[in-house]
């Protein structure tokens, strides 16, 4: 099963790519996908995705252009698009 992950803000710098296609387990949750990426890629990406082993609360995630508020309870389908953002500001 394949999903597209689009990185936004500091995550784009850490991932060194704007978006990428990733293979995931069937019925994986959004949190599963993000944890798998963090474990596979390590720092600096993992440092922005995880806090103390959990998905960082500061992340904003959307799935097919809908905000995801329950990362563990939301499963991704084949061909889904995740947008993952760290907060950004003015200045």
């Amino acid at each position: 099963m394949s999903v597209t992950v689009e990185w936004f803000g500091q995550l784009r710098d850490a991932a060194q790519v704007g978006e990428e296609d990733l293979e995931t387990e069937p019925a994986a949750s959004v949190a599963d996908v993000l944890r798998a990426i963090a474990n596979a890629r390590g720092a600096p990406l993992s440092g922005l995705l995880l806090r103390g082993g959990d998905i960082a609360r500061t992340l904003f995630v959307s799935l097919d252009d809908e905000q995801v508020t329950d990362l563990d309870g939301t499963t991704v389908a084949d061909g889904a698009r995740l947008v993952v953002m760290t907060p950004i500001s003015g200045g």
Binding site: Q10, G47, L48, R51, A56, R57, T58, F60, Q67, T86, P87, I88, S89, G91
Partner: peptide, 15 residues
């Protein structure tokens, strides 16, 4: 949208 202050955010950033 963002319930906590992001710890990695820096005052100066590329733009």
């Amino acid at each position: 949208l963002h319930p906590e202050i992001p710890p990695a955010w820096k005052r100066e950033f590329p733009v």
